[in-house]
Design a protein around this nucleic acid. Structure first.
Lengths: 239, 239
DNA sequence: CTAGCTCCTTGATTTTCGTTAGGTCCATTT
DNA sequence: AAATGGACCTAACGAAAATCAAGGAGCTAG
């Protein structure tokens, strides 16, 4: 299902980072060609290798972007929610999507055709600056992800993930895991079983996981774990 | 050492992908604020966490971009050469470099201040399009790197690396490893020892490595190895 | 020539992680 | 209340890769 944006909605959409810095006119211009799309859990939003003719913004729900190898393995490249843009890199390559997008919960996404984006940029070059900022943020995200994969153990990556969710500077906190554990595992580059083991290890650092709730009793302790050297983590027999 | 660009050089620089699509005027405008910088092997070009006030294009040599954790581990995020841009993401975040850049051979880089870039974009919005294309390409690169780390074994990643260097469609070929093995290992997310062992495994697929020369006797055989499922690779006892 | 250096390889050992298979818990259905 | 199915955890095994330690190969300089 797919509908155009009515002008009464434009104001609400101004909250979105990509649109925030734009003038009202630019925002209206860009949204004029956009459509709202409701997708249910498990539904594909775009397919790897298809012609990239649109990029997206999540309005509601969660979306995963992943790359599938020819042999069936899949690598999660990003998981996005409310206000975040995705597949915007493909909009400038004039080629195909390098990954696929799928809704992991019932979701609503804003779909902006690349042809319309090009027109909008021509009409107001400031839109280009907003896009570049968005691209840069994604670039940064991916750099962090690569660093994590290369230099952190599984348990460290899980700890990092939890800390990002919490955004508490110190002390203790309770948080809700935003999507199921299989996807968390994929996002962190491991199998569900390994994620399970990682949670086990984190128990000795004061992390309690029950269902989709995690209780961190000492945020700082967890933070020091993340900052520890790989070697040290491996040799400490905390479990 | 750092010098401005003389107009006789501008023509030669038109080969660079980022500058290729620009009009002569736009190219001259952008290069007016650029400086050429000679750096020797091992010299830093920019530092992680420093204010990001410039981005770069490699004119000569090889440059590595890496992220260092607080505990001394380092993750190579990219290795760039002739004609490639790097750190251009930082130019739009108005913040700090998320990684460091270092020359791995004696090199010459073009240094373009972000303030000047902003001016140039204001003067000619087409420059923004070129930058976006460049950003997108990097984004794509990183996505591929993440996929590789998550779904390929060490030997598969090495094979992929060799295939990228060769660009031969089939048959056999000889190629020169562009930088030292410790860096190749870092680039591929493994330790030098593991790289060495990966080369050993590839012998049974017709790859001979002597010094900094690699001979691939059958490009296609290598390609099928890369496309194989992780599971299959793991259980086949080719050695 | 050889002493010292850096880079690379090799071997032995340990740790991590994927795989497989079986089990628990819980909600929904019948 | 029993059965079903799904999500999750656990355990045992094997493969991959890191670590630690030692040994070569090739280069440079005295």
């Amino acid at each position: 299902m797919s509908t155009t944006i009515v002008s009464s909605e434009v104001e609400k959409l101004a909250e979105i980072p990509l649109l925030k810095r734009l003038s009202t006119e630019a925002r209206e211009q860009l949204l004029r060609g956009a459509t709202k799309k409701s997708v249910s859990r498990g539904e594909m939003i775009f397919f790897q290798d298809d012609k990239a003719d649109a990029f997206f913004i999540v309005l509601e729900g969660w979306v995963k972007v992943f790359r599938a190898t020819s042999s069936g393995d899949e690598a999660v490249v990003g998981v996005f929610t409310r206000g975040q843009t995705f597949a915007e890199g493909a909009a400038f390559t004039n080629s195909n999507y390098p990954a696929s997008g799928e809704a992991v919960t019932d979701s609503v996404v804003l779909c902006i055709p690349v042809a319309h984006l090009a027109n909008s940029i021509a009409a107001d070059p400031n839109i280009a600056l907003a896009m570049m900022s968005s691209l840069s943020m994604h670039l940064h995200q991916l750099v962090l992800q690569i660093e994590g994969l290369k230099t952190h153990t599984g348990a460290q990556r899980v700890a990092e993930f939890l800390l990002n969710l919490s955004s508490e500077p110190a002390g203790s906190c309770t948080l809700v895991l935003p999507y199921d554990k299989a996807l968390i595992a994929g996002r962190l580059g491991m199998k569900p079983e390994s994620l399970s083991r990682a949670f086990q290890k984190l128990k000795s650092y004061g992390v309690e996981v029950k269902q989709n709730r995690a209780i961190i009793s000492n945020v700082q302790a967890l933070r020091t774990l993340v900052e520890q050297e790989r070697t040290v983590v491996m040799h400490s027999s905390h479990g």
